[in-house]
Design a protein around this nucleic acid. Structure first.
Lengths: 294, 294
DNA sequence: TCTGTTTACGCACAGCGTAATCATG
DNA sequence: CATGATTACGCTGTGCGTAAACAGA
């Protein structure tokens, strides 16, 4: 018993004749006849009564027909679904991202990717880089977008884009008109910054100490949105990734300030497992990342 | 794609390794490996990630696994059901019977046959011989038990048993003590008999006229049970098939009377289509009929 | 004779085993 | 070196087509 024979059987039932089924299946009559005989032999059952040239289903024939139809429907559905997956008409890509990227970049990335590929399931997780790395290793995500360093040798790290942190102030702040300040002026300001452990804070502190610039932290907020609101309210100045403030810069609510001779640079990376098969959807997502401007 | 490959696939998923699956399936590793590769090639999809010697299902792999399990369950169920049918652990035999046989013989026949073969479905129809013959020709029953003559050349008629009609009277009737009467005495009696068209009445009338015995019908009842009750109540005498009065004869409520020199004989026949395949269940039913004393 | 099924026979390929190779711990 | 996957290759049997026989209208 195999799919083909079941298909032959159901077709014969539909047509009421072997020759009709043969025509429909692009086979010869003998092949159809043989398939039916083999089914009958294998199952030790007569499927048809041959009365007056008419093929009439026997009881076991009826029973088998029921099963055969159900099986073939499932098989065809399976094949069609797999074809959809192969053609990326359906699929799944599990994405992980570290906090900043996940918050400010990922939504737009997923939105546009989802537009390009309908019916695609794109579950995502947002957590710090270490957790995202771990998820990649235990195969609970397919690809990650992170800011921090990766340690596992099994993970391929591909630079995605350069990120830069900027000092920001309110449009009402005295700096707003100047856009450039000297390193010395910063120590006079109330600095609002993310909590210890944040990648953003780490880059800021490292860079500042590298340049031996003194500064004093006034407020600590564990949330970029809260920081932006605080700066907008002119409670102090802060430093955040440029991707977090596009909107506010555009509308003029916040102003980017250049600290003379100092830049806060880091890289965003795409990470994925070196041994994992790269599905077409995966490749498309990579292409999508590199093509788009997010 | 075929059953075997799906089976290989699900087994590999269960075992988490090709070698394990090979052992379970009594195949060699390469054969398993090849089956999986062929599946992947045919469906144009990667089913496993080969990470650290571990086989991890990809998304398309998961989807296929779902389908494969459902398909294989159905296939196994189908095979098991067909096997049951072949072994007569389940099955169906559609029986038709003419009125007298259907009423007095068939219930016991079906009861005992159903005891021998559990889980067998035995739908039956009771109607006059002509209808039963027609049902056989249009394949709505598999076998018939009839008293009347069959006309179709396509039907095989096999004598089943001899039936004899007997004149019956109540135990309170004057005849009851004698058991034998002469042909002349019958015309003095109130005769109760079935309606026109009844096989029983036909045999009675034919036999009586063949012997030139005069008789007068007093009551007509279209129902053997009613006739028996009427005779028991000594309203008159009647003539019925011996199979209809076993119980009453045994208990003495009715008495069988011999009409000297006259017997009302007919045959019960088993009928079935000459071209229809005789299932094992069918053969068993024939054997059952011939073996039992009904 | 024509239509449709079955039987007979030969070929081609799918699918399995054996053996060798590769990869990884 | 041991375990397990892959590659290479040859054989066997399934499954199909062609051809012929058979059966019924």
């Amino acid at each position: 018993m195999n799919f083909k024979k079941l298909k032959v059987f159901t077709t014969v039932c539909d047509c009421g004749s072997m020759s009709g089924a043969a025509k429909k299946l692009y086979m010869t009559q003998p092949a159809v006849s043989q398939a039916i005989l083999e089914l009958e032999e294998e199952l030790d059952v007569h499927l048809f009564d041959r009365i007056n040239k008419k093929l009439l289903l026997t009881y076991p024939g009826e029973v088998l027909l029921e099963y055969a139809r159900r099986i073939l429907v499932l098989v065809e559905e399976a094949q069609s679904t797999m074809k959809d997956i192969a053609n990326m008409n359906t699929g799944k890509l599990r994405i992980g991202a570290s906090t900043t990227i996940g918050t400010y970049l990922l939504p737009e990335i997923i939105r546009t990717f989802g537009q390009k590929f309908k019916n695609i399931d794109i579950p995502f997780a947002i957590d710090n880089t270490g957790v995202i790395e771990k998820m990649l290793l235990e195969n609970s995500i397919d690809i990650g977008l992170v800011e921090g360093p990766i340690h596992s040798k099994e993970i391929i790290v591909k630079p995605y884009m350069d990120d830069e942190l900027f000092i920001i102030c309110s449009k009402n702040h005295p700096w707003a008109a100047r856009k450039r300040i000297g390193p010395g002026t910063i120590s006079e300001q109330n600095i609002i910054i993310r909590e210890q452990g944040s990648g953003t804070r780490e880059v800021f502190e490292n860079t500042m100490s590298k340049h031996n610039i003194p500064y004093s932290i006034k407020h600590v907020l564990n949330n970029t949105e809260a920081i932006k609101k605080a700066v907008e309210a002119n409670i102090g100045v802060s430093v955040v990734s440029e991707i977090a403030i596009k909107e506010e810069i555009k509308s003029g609510r916040l102003v980017k300030i250049n600290l003379e001779g100092v830049r806060f640079l880091r890289k965003f990376n795409i990470i994925y497992h070196k041994d994992k098969y790269h599905s077409k959807l995966f490749e498309e997502f990579l292409r999508h990342l590199c093509s788009g401007n997010f």
